[in-house]
């Protein structure tokens, strides 16, 4: 009886076991494709070794396929990878192969791991591990291994714009290489205190909290022109 129930459960796709990696990804891509453009306010809270930065506020703009701009009055620090490049990468199905992995619960959301390997040898992304909720077609975690930026882990939280797959919170965990500033260019020449000891590679976190999304309202290309 138990085996019959398990069989029925699997067929129903309760954990996405009935779906292939491509089918699971397609659900996510379909959601991404619903968004032609968006703009949103974002609050950036960074806790990065070697950098002391106050909470910054910025405005972000995105337009299909790959136009992305951050506008901020003050200095805002964002991760180099994982902002808009991942969705662009996923949308181009010919450029990668996907492998279905284990099931995992992330923040009470049941997800399946899809490992994505680019087929292009020059791709900046070496490996992307994407944890997708098959019931919601939403990404809840991404672990990107990149050529130049090391490993970037991104956790997603959703609220009002679930239907577009747009998160209201993204938590980036990035690798920060050891920072050495020559004393001659540092501002505190008089400071003879021993420098703080850090490991060769430290982890930094950047939390982006999005609000005031305006989706598919149309954004002029002029917005993306460099200042």
């Amino acid at each position: 009886m138990k085996s019959v129930l398990l069989f029925v459960f699997i067929l129903s796709g309760g954990f996405g076991f009935g779906q292939t990696a491509e089918e699971i990804l397609k659900g996510v891509i379909d959601k991404i494709d619903l968004v032609e453009d968006y703009q949103a306010d974002v609050q950036i809270k960074a806790a990065i070794p070697f950098i002391k930065v106050p909470i910054a506020k910025a405005k972000i703009y995105f337009k299909q396929k790959d136009k992305f701009k951050v506008e901020s009055k003050g200095i805002a620090i964002l991760p180099k990878q994982g902002m808009s490049d991942l969705t662009g990468f996923l949308s181009n199905e010919k450029k990668y192969s996907a492998v279905l992995g284990e099931a995992k619960t992330i923040n009470e959301h049941k997800t399946r791991l899809i490992s994505i390997l680019p087929t292009d040898e020059n791709s900046e992304i070496i490996l992307a591990k994407v944890y997708i909720s098959t019931s919601e077609d939403l990404i809840y975690r991404t672990v990107l291994t990149t050529k130049s930026s090391g490993t970037v882990s991104i956790d997603y939280e959703y609220n009002l714009n679930k239907k577009y797959g747009l998160p209201n919170k993204m938590t980036f965990t990035v690798d920060i290489k050891k920072f050495k500033m020559p004393k001659s260019v540092a501002s505190d020449i008089r400071n003879n205190d021993k420098q703080k000891k850090y490991k060769d590679n430290e982890k930094g976190t950047i939390v982006l909290t999005f609000s005031n999304y305006l989706v598919n309202k149309g954004i002029s290309d002029d917005v993306f022109k460099k200042d």
Partner: peptide, 29 residues
């Protein structure tokens, strides 16, 4: 670029970094 180079592989710095306040600080220094 010299100031931010150590971090630029991982992070992007947005906003007006080269501004009057930075220049004033450099001049004073």
């Amino acid at each position: 670029g010299f100031v931010t180079a150590s971090f630029e592989q991982t992070l992007s710095f947005n906003g007006k970094i080269l501004n009057g306040n930075l220049i004033a600080f450099i001049i004073m220094q």
